[in-house]
Design a binder for these strands. Structure first.
Lengths: 115, 115
DNA sequence: GTAAGTACTATCCTTTTTGTAACAGATAGC
DNA sequence: GCTATCTGTTACAAAAAGGATAGTACTTAC
């Protein structure tokens, strides 16, 4: 498990690239993170994530294509749409938790370094 | 721990953003992943990661500024430079491992889905 | 002096991403 | 009819990122 053969490294690098292909970019992980607190409407997501509708629409389509987010149209007064994390998206939990922890620790480190 | 208050969610989202600020983008995590197999020279990194020298130079500077990579000039025949992960960069291990696992599983899932 | 290797930097250009603003279709309230 | 809300889309523009190609500087080898 601790061996660093050429093959195992190439495999690891490929896996990282694969992951970045799906959830890389500026918004994907942020959207998923925001959606972890529950289903959200389009404008709601736009506000909470601070993302313009144009980009949001594109990002949500890509997330949906990759099976990470589901889109449900609700038959309400003004028609509304609910975006929600899929079961499969939970497989990203480790990634998200690790990034949350790191970001939190890193910020602490930076702040302490300044003071 | 399982509460989803407004504050805890905002905190989590901020942490994700912080992490992305440091290791987001197309190359940072790939470079770190490549460097996990040991120190590398500039051209070596360029070849292994498939990144052009111009971008590589910029990315390495940013990684160095954030304390994730160290740069050592070696007094060899033709002068060489060794790039190496810092101690602090190991704090990203959980993130990298989680992403490696996910990328690997996701690829398996996709391949199976096609066959 | 010529070629080759290392580590970049500079220049130019293309692609991708992101943002802004406006607009469309549907429905409800006034 | 006018306005407002919700969900997007479209058109246009700006910015960021990325790639290709050379070129610089230094050193060793021939």
């Amino acid at each position: 498990m601790k061996e660093h053969t050429i093959e195992s490294c190439a495999k690891a690098n490929l896996a990282i690239r694969d992951t970045l292909d799906i959830v890389g970019g500026k918004w994907k992980l942020i959207l998923i993170s925001v959606l972890r607190s529950g289903k959200k409407g389009f404008n709601e997501l736009s506000r909470e994530a601070g993302i313009s509708p144009r980009i949001l629409s594109k990002e949500l389509q890509e997330l949906e294509m990759n099976g990470l987010v589901s889109r449900k149209v609700c038959d309400t007064k003004p028609i509304t749409v609910q975006y929600e994390l899929t079961e499969y998206s939970h497989s990203l939990n480790d990634v998200l938790v690790a990034m949350e922890k790191w970001g939190y620790q890193h910020r602490k480190r930076i702040v302490q370094g300044i003071e």
